[in-house]
Each structure stands twice: as structure tokens, then as C-alpha cells.
């Protein structure tokens, strides 16, 4: 190789002199740089939409009250600009003395999927994919093996010999998803809700790999939500329209529940299968349920300690 590089006249006879060769190298380098710039020119699109404020935005937990206000104002303006919708983004914090727990009565759930749809509408999900934080498995009676279930059924429900199991984020007390996040873009809040800072997530999707419940969703593209369908009651850590390239998940409708309201999926359930409440309140419905029904959690063996329970009562 050294011989070859020395024998310039052999390999490239036209380049007789060093200066000539150096000049050619310069041309080559310029061409290469130009070609590279052309190759990555689509990124200029990004430069148009990505603001310095967004790029340099601090982690949610490090934002000052004033900084947070500015961020929220910016996000509201962006939503107006990109989606043509007037929205209010709030940032409700956990209610002291509250830990949210959910339970579903599988004897009652009939798999109609209204919760899936309510979640879709409430949380400003992408219309193209019918995205939702909830998946309902049609399960074979006589087994808890999910492999014999499926989510694609679209016949009348309940079908003979089947039961139905909606699955969404289990708001684990030992969440593997928050452990694996390399940038602490997702964490568990004091009321038990595992949240994502959509403006901090780098989109590595390690949390998606770590979650045993298929609870996380990635924004493979910018969500498409028609202006008229945008739910204007939004939360910073919950249902504001997510940017492209970040992970999101069920947040127990914290923009509602932290204001005392029931989650959208519960209100939508026509069978009344869903029970929600504060486990720290000894008089709460959920507390009575956990004390009196034979409940179980999904995949207990993986040690995630879900705040989400299932039970049968007939």
C-alpha cells in the first residue's frame, strides 16, 4: 500500500505534481462536503420547525414556575399553529395523600372497546392508527395464557367461551420502564402515576422494550388530529398532543384525575367494569374492592408490583 501511495505516477498518471494532487484533493473534499450537505438537506425542514427554546428546554423537574409557564404558553401557541386548535395546557400536581389504583372486573367486561375509543379521543391520539393506551385481549376461558388471546377480534361480544381483558399501563410500583430510561425522561410521581416528559424523551424506546405490558407507545410520526377533534383540556404530562419521535403512555388521565374527576375510560365503560380510586383512603371504593374481592395482577412473576388489578366476581 505504501508503494502504491508513493507511486503516484502509476496510479494516477495525470496528477504529476504534488500541488496538482493537493488541488484535486481540495476539489474532492469540496465535492464531498457539498454532496453531504445535499444528502442531509431534508434536515433543513427541522430547522424551520425546531425552535431554540424547544431544543434547549430543561427537564420538567428542573423548570422554574416561570419557565414552566413560558413552556406551556409556547406549547399552546404551537398547538394553535400546527393543529388550529385553542387548547389549555394545565400542569396539575399530585394530590397529597393520594395513590391511584385501578381495577377491572373481568366478569363484567365484554370487550366492546368503548374504553379504547374514549382513551383515543380524550388523549388526542393519532387518528390514522386508532392509537390508544388500552388494548383489549379476547381471552379463551379456562386459561390465562395470553398467547391464546388476540386483540383483533371484531365480531359481536362477548363471544361464546371467551372473556375480555383490557390492558393499559399498570402504573407499577417497581416500573422497569423508568429504570431503563437513560435520561430520566420518565418517572413515577407521588400519586403513583408514571409520566413522561415528552419534551425530554430522546426516543430510544428502551422503555418500550422493558415494559412487560405493552403499555408504551412511540410516536412514529406526527400525530394527526383534526382541529375539531382536539380535546382542548390538556395536561403537560398527560394528553397534550405529543411531538414526533417520543414515547407516551397511559397516565390515568391525570389532567382529570388530579382534579378529582374519573378517568375517561371508566366513564366510557358501558358495562361498569372499571373501578378507580385512592387506595390511601380507607373508605374508598377501590379499597373495599381490594379487601373484599379476590384480585390478581398481571404477570406478578416479573415483580413489577402493578397498581392495576383484575378480578372476577361471578
Amino acid at each position: 500500500m505504501t508503494e502504491q501511495s508513493k507511486g503516484k505516477t502509476i496510479s494516477l498518471p495525470v496528477l504529476g505534481s504534488v500541488s496538482r494532487r493537493t488541488a484535486m484533493k481540495g476539489v474532492g473534499a469540496t465535492l464531498g462536503a457539498g454532496a453531504f450537505a445535499a444528502a442531509i438537506s431534508p434536515l433543513r425542514h427541522l430547522a424551520d420547525t425546531l425552535t431554540v427554546e424547544e431544543l434547549m428546554q430543561q427537564h420538567y423537574q428542573e423548570l422554574s414556575a416561570d419557565g414552566k409557564k413560558k413552556v406551556i404558553e409556547r406549547l399552546e401557541a404551537e398547538t394553535k399553529e400546527q393543529y388550529g386548535a385553542d387548547v389549555t395546557i394545565s400542569d396539575p400536581r399530585p394530590i397529597p395523600g393520594t395513590k391511584f389504583v385501578y381495577a377491572i372486573n373481568l366478569s363484567v367486561c365484554n370487550g366492546n372497546g368503548k374504553c379504547v375509543e374514549a382513551c383515543h379521543n380524550e388523549n388526542n391520539h393519532d387518528r390514522d392508527t386508532n392509537q390508544s393506551y388500552i388494548r383489549v385481549l379476547e381471552m379463551q376461558k379456562g386459561t390465562m395464557d395470553m398467547e391464546q388471546g388476540n386483540t383483533t377480534y371484531d365480531h359481536e361480544v362477548p363471544a361464546a367461551d371467551k372473556f375480555y381483558m383490557p390492558v393499559q399501563c399498570q402504573q407499577c410500583d417497581e416500573p422497569p420502564c423508568t429504570d431503563v430510561c437513560p435520561v430520566q425522561a420518565t418517572w413515577k410521581e407521588d400519586d403513583g402515576i408514571v409520566v413522561v416528559d415528552y419534551n425530554w424523551c430522546i426516543g430510544c424506546r428502551y422503555c418500550e422494550a422493558a415494559c412487560p405490558y405493552h403499555a408504551r407507545r412511540f410516536n412514529w410520526k406526527t400525530p394527526n388530529v383534526p382541529a375539531a377533534e382536539v380535546n382542548p383540556d390538556q395536561g403537560y404530562l398527560s394528553n397534550r398532543i405529543r411531538p414526533q419521535g417520543v414515547v407516551e403512555k397511559c397516565h390515568y388521565c391525570l389532567h382529570r384525575t388530579r382534579k378529582g374527576r374519573l378517568p375517561a375510560c371508566l366513564e366510557a365503560c358501558p358495562t361498569g367494569a372499571r373501578v378507580f380510586g385512592n387506595i390511601l383512603d380507607p373508605d374508598s371504593e377501590i379499597r373495599w374492592l381490594l379487601e373484599n374481592k379476590r384480585v390478581y395482577v398481571l404477570k406478578e412473576e416479573v415483580g413489577t408490583k402493578p397498581s392495576f388489578f383484575y378480578f372476577f366476581d361471578s
Binding site: 431544543l55 437513560p182 435520561v183 424523551c201
Partner: peptide
């Protein structure tokens, strides 16, 4: 593989939030 390569700086210890050692 990153959805948001523009936020890679979040991975830089000191600048971002480096979830070490748990992640």
C-alpha cells in the same frame, strides 16, 4: 435509532440527566 437525535445532549452527564447507574 433515536426518535429525537436533536436531544442527544440529554445523554451528556452534567448537561442532561444521566440516569446512572440504574439504566
Amino acid at each position: 435509532d433515536l426518535g429525537r437525535p436533536d436531544r442527544s445532549w440529554h445523554l451528556i452527564p452534567g448537561l442532561g440527566r444521566f440516569n446512572f447507574p440504574i439504566s
